[in-house]
């Protein structure tokens, strides 16, 4: 896949890191401010999609990245399920119970397991959207 013009490449170079950091911020502060795993994960996926669209890449590299992100997505949802299942072995034996200490409301490290769930969902959503995008790009490349 070919990249775009110099202007697009330079703007991407300036913006991509900021978009990525903003996505991480949205995921990590999901239990304090509006946002969370789904929104932040989509923003992170947008940063990666911007990179691939602006700079382009060889199809073999794209295939490897698709495999990697597909694997990462499955791993993230597995961890999410494992942490939910771990609630079955804690004192109130409930699926999806909040077994970590809650902490003070409004602190960054608070709300028990919820930040961890947010991170797993964020990774899963980002990897899933990036995989779908790469699948379409590879399909287009193979057509030529």
């Amino acid at each position: 896949m070919k990249g775009m013009t110099v202007i697009v490449k330079k703007v991407t170079q300036l913006l991509c890191g900021i978009i990525f950091i903003f996505g991480i911020y949205i995921v990590l502060h999901g239990h304090l401010t509006p946002g969370g795993g789904f929104a932040g994960g989509t923003i992170i996926a947008g940063a990666f999609i911007l990179l691939v669209l602006a700079y382009g890449d060889h199809i073999i590299h794209l295939r490897v990245r698709k495999e990697d992100s597909s694997r990462l997505e499955s791993f993230a949802i597995f961890l999410f399920l494992a942490f939910a299942l771990a609630g079955m072995f804690m004192i109130p034996s409930v699926f999806f119970s909040n077994y970590y200490p809650l902490g003070a409301v409004g602190e960054l490290l608070s709300a028990g397991v919820i930040p961890l769930y947010n991170i797993f969902i964020g990774v899963e959503v980002a990897a899933a959207l990036f995989t779908v995008f790469l699948a379409f790009v590879i399909l287009k490349e193979e057509d030529k």
Binding site: F95, F96, L102, A111, G112, Y117
Partner: peptide, 16 residues
């Protein structure tokens, strides 16, 4: 839930 954002608190705790 200990979560200041009520939406996330409901999504990941009550409605896991």
């Amino acid at each position: 839930t200990g979560s200041a954002n009520l939406v996330t608190g409901i999504l990941f705790d009550f409605r896991g």
